[in-house]
Design a protein around this nucleic acid. Structure first.
Length: 457
DNA sequence: GTAGGGTTAG
C-alpha cells in the first residue's frame, strides 16, 4: 500500500517535469524511483510518452511504448490514444489507422477519445463520409460524446468544404443545449473566413463576444489572417496593433501571418522590424517561421543570408519542406538566376516532393522575365498539372511579346478548365488582338469568355 | 490522453 502511494507521488513529480519539457530530469526521477524500489507503472510511461511526443517527436514516443513492453507493462487505452493523436497531428494517417487496429487486436476497448482521434484522422484524409460514420457510431452506441467530438466534427466539415453543414450542426447542437467553447468559435470563424462567408464569420465573432468568452491570440490571428486573405491589409495590421495594445503574447503564428502580409505588400522595412522582434523573442523558430523569414530575405535580395538560413535550419535539426524550396527557387528567379532556379527545381523533384507546381510557376515567370519566352513555352507544354497561375503568367508574357493569338489560345484553354484568370490579362489579350487587326477573333474571344463565365459561376 | 490560428507563385 505504502509502495503504491509512493509511485503515485513519483508520477506526480514526473508529470510536473514533463509538463514543462524537462525530460532529462523526469528520466532521472524514474531512475531514482527504481533505486528506491518504486517501479514505474503504466501512468509513468503514459506521462513520458505524451511528453516525448510533444517535445521531441513521434519516434521518441514510440520508443517509450517499446520500453514499457520490455518492462512487462501492457499499454492501455490512454497509451494508444496518445500515440494515435500524435500520429494524426503529424499527418501520419496510415500510422493512426494501424494503431487503432492494433489496439482492437490487443483487446483494448477504444473509448470516446479514441473515436474522436479516428474521426479527426478521416477528416484529415479527406474522407468526411468515413468520419461521419464514426460520429454516428459514437452517437448511436453508449459512448458519451464529449465537446471535442463536436468540435472535431465541426472543424472537419469546414475543412472538407462543408461549412454549411458545419453551421447547421452547430445551430442544432446549440438548440440541444451544447454550450460552445472558445475553440468552437475559433473553428467556425476560421472555416467561414476560408470559404469567404465573411458575414457569417462576423456573426459568429459577435456571438463569441456575447457569450462571455474572451477572444484569445488564436481568435485574433484567425481574424487578422482573414483580413489579409480578403486583401484588407490595413484592417489586418490594425488588428495586430490591437493585439499588442491589449497585451496579448505573440507567438510564431501571429508573427508569421503579419510578416508575410507586410512582405507581400512590399512594406519590407516594417516586415524587417517585426521579424527582428520575433528573433529577439524567446520563441523557438520552426520550419514555417524560417520559411517566412527566408521569403523576406529573398524579397530584400539577400540571397547570401538566405543560404545561411538554410544552414541554420539544418543545425536546428529541422527539415526543409515544399515551401522552403519553393521560396528559394522564387528568390533565385527574382534575382535573375534562372539557371540556378532550374537546377534547384530538378533537385526538388529528385527529393520526391509531391507537388512542385508553385515552384514550376515561379520558374516559368522567371524564364519570361529574362527573355527566354520560348524556353518557358516548352516548359509549360511539358507540365502535367497547371493552374490559373501557370496560365496567367504565360498569357501575360505572351501579350508582352505581342503574341496575342497564342495568348488567346491559352486563355481559352484556361477558362475551359474551369480556372479563373486575372481580368487584366483577359483585357490585354482582347486589346492586343484588336490592335493587331484580328478584330473578329477578338469578338469571338469575348463571347467565349462570357460563355465560360456563365458555365462556371 | 483529443479539437482551433501562421509560410510559396501571376
Amino acid at each position: 500500500m505504502v509502495c503504491r502511494f509512493s509511485t503515485k507521488l513519483l508520477n506526480i513529480c514526473i508529470a510536473s517535469l514533463c509538463k514543462v519539457g524537462q525530460l532529462e530530469k523526469a528520466e532521472a526521477v524514474v531512475i531514482d524511483g527504481i533505486r528506491l524500489g518504486l517501479l514505474p507503472d503504466v501512468v509513468t510511461y503514459n506521462t513520458l510518452l505524451s511528453a516525448y511526443s510533444r517535445f521531441v517527436g513521434i519516434d521518441a514516443a514510440y520508443s517509450v511504448i517499446h520500453r514499457m513492453k520490455e518492462a512487462g507493462i501492457s499499454p492501455d487505452v490512454i497509451t494508444y490514444n496518445s500515440l494515435i493523436a500524435a500520429a494524426t497531428k503529424r499527418c501520419l494517417l496510415s500510422r493512426s489507422l494501424d494503431l487503432f487496429e492494433e489496439m482492437l487486436r490487443t483487446g483494448i476497448r477504444p473509448d470516446v477519445w479514441s473515436y474522436n482521434s479516428l474521426m479527426h484522422c478521416f477528416f484529415k484524409l479527406g474522407k468526411p463520409d468515413e468520419a461521419n460514420r464514426v460520429f454516428q457510431d459514437i452517437i448511436l452506441t453508449n459512448l458519451l460524446p464529449s465537446s471535442s467530438t463536436f468540435n472535431i466534427m465541426i472543424n472537419g466539415l469546414c475543412n472538407n468544404g462543408y461549412t454549411g453543414y458545419a453551421l447547421s450542426l452547430y445551430r442544432y447542437l446549440q438548440r440541444q443545449g451544447f454550450v460552445p467553447e472558445l475553440v468552437t468559435y475559433n473553428i467556425l470563424i476560421n472555416g467561414l473566413c476560408k470559404s469567404r462567408k465573411l458575414n457569417a464569420a462576423r456573426r459568429i465573432l459577435r456571438e463569441l463576444g456575447e457569450s462571455g468568452n474572451v477572444p484569445d491570440a488564436i481568435t485574433y490571428t484567425t481574424v487578422m489572417k482573414c483580413c489579409f486573405r480578403s486583401r484588407q491589409f490595413e484592417q489586418g495590421f490594425e488588428i495586430f496593433s490591437e493585439m499588442k495594445s491589449k497585451g496579448y503574447a505573440f507567438d510564431a503564428f501571429s508573427y508569421c501571418a503579419v510578416i508575410a502580409a507586410l512582405t507581400k505588400t512590399g512594406r519590407l522595412e516594417e516586415a524587417n522590424d517585426i521579424m527582428e522582434q520575433m528573433a529577439r523573442s524567446d520563441i523557438d523558430l520552426d520550419i514555417v517561421s524560417y520559411n517566412t523569414v527566408m521569403n523576406l530575405y529573398c524579397r530584400n535580395g539577400k540571397l547570401e543570408a538566405t543560404y545561411k538560413l538554410l544552414d541554420e535550419i539544418e543545425e536546428h535539426g529541422l527539415e526543409c519542406d515544399e515551401y522552403t524550396h519553393t521560396i528559394l527557387i522564387d528568390g533565385l528567379c527574382k534575382a535573375g538566376n534562372v539557371e540556378g532556379a532550374l537546377r534547384h527545381l530538378k533537385n526538388m523533384t529528385k527529393m520526391g516532393f509531391d507537388s512542385t507546381l508553385v515552384a514550376q510557376n515561379c520558374v516559368i515567370d522567371g524564364l519570361c522575365k529574362v527573355g527566354q519566352l520560348d524556353h518557358a513555352i516548352k516548359m509549360f507544354a511539358s507540365m502535367e498539372v497547371k493552374d490559373s497561375f501557370t496560365y496567367s503568367s504565360m498569357v501575360h508574357n505572351l501579350c508582352k511579346a505581342r503574341r496575342y493569338r497564342h495568348a488567346s489560345r491559352l486563355l481559352l484553354a484556361c477558362l475551359r478548365g474551369g480556372m479563373k484568370i486575372l481580368r487584366a490579362n483577359q483585357r490585354s489579350v482582347i486589346d492586343g488582338l484588336c490592335y493587331s487587326g484580328y478584330t473578329s477573333e477578338a469578338r469571338r474571344l469575348k463571347s467565349k469568355i462570357r460563355l465560360a463565365r456563365i458555365l462556371h459561376y
